[in-house]
């Protein structure tokens, strides 16, 4: 079965024909061609596929596209405008929050979700908010610094 799906992707309304058994992750990567969102595991265990649905972090590898009608989906491609990196992107870039980079889009989106609902998180809140994401390279210390720095940039007016 397939359906016409109306939703908002990275700020733009669109209508797509989508099969009922299509994961949001595959839909984004294979049909729409937005490959920023990563596939890291066989379902639910790594967070590399994290996107925002109505501003809340969600795992696109366990979300069926057929359930997101009318919702707003934001992927890592939505961040940054006119060549300017967003606060979270700058944080990860300048504080070396990424090494191999595979987990990074997931961490970036989980962090963006955090800063949208809590612009000034404590370290404990940052650690809690990133609890669904796994990184095999950084040891997390740099990621936490990156998010703290992003929050400070956000306070200066750089969008998260």
């Amino acid at each position: 079965m397939a359906r016409l799906l109306e939703f908002t992707l990275n700020g733009r309304d669109r209508v797509d024909a989508v099969a009922d058994n299509m994961l949001l992750l595959d839909f984004l990567r294979e049909k729409i061609g937005l490959t920023g969102t990563k596939t890291g595991c066989d379902g639910g265990e790594c967070g590399a596929c994290t996107v925002l649905i109505d501003d809340e972090p969600a795992l696109s590898c366990l979300t069926l596209a057929a359930t997101i009608a009318g919702k707003r989906v934001d992927t890592v491609e939505s961040l940054g405008h006119d060549g300017q990196l967003s606060a979270v992107q700058r944080g990860f870039h300048e504080k070396l929050g990424a090494q191999c980079g595979y987990c990074t889009p997931g961490f970036v989106m989980a962090s963006a979700g955090l800063l949208r609902r809590n612009p000034n998180p404590s370290e404990a809140e940052i650690i809690d908010a990133l609890g669904s994401n796994i990184c095999r390279c950084t040891g997390y210390v740099k990621i936490i610094e990156a998010v703290k720095y992003a929050a400070s940039l956000n306070a200066q007016g750089v969008s998260p």
Binding site: P57, A58, S132
Partner: peptide
Amino acid sequence: IAGPTHRNM
């Protein structure tokens, strides 16, 4: 339960 993103879902 699980992690924060799982709990959102």
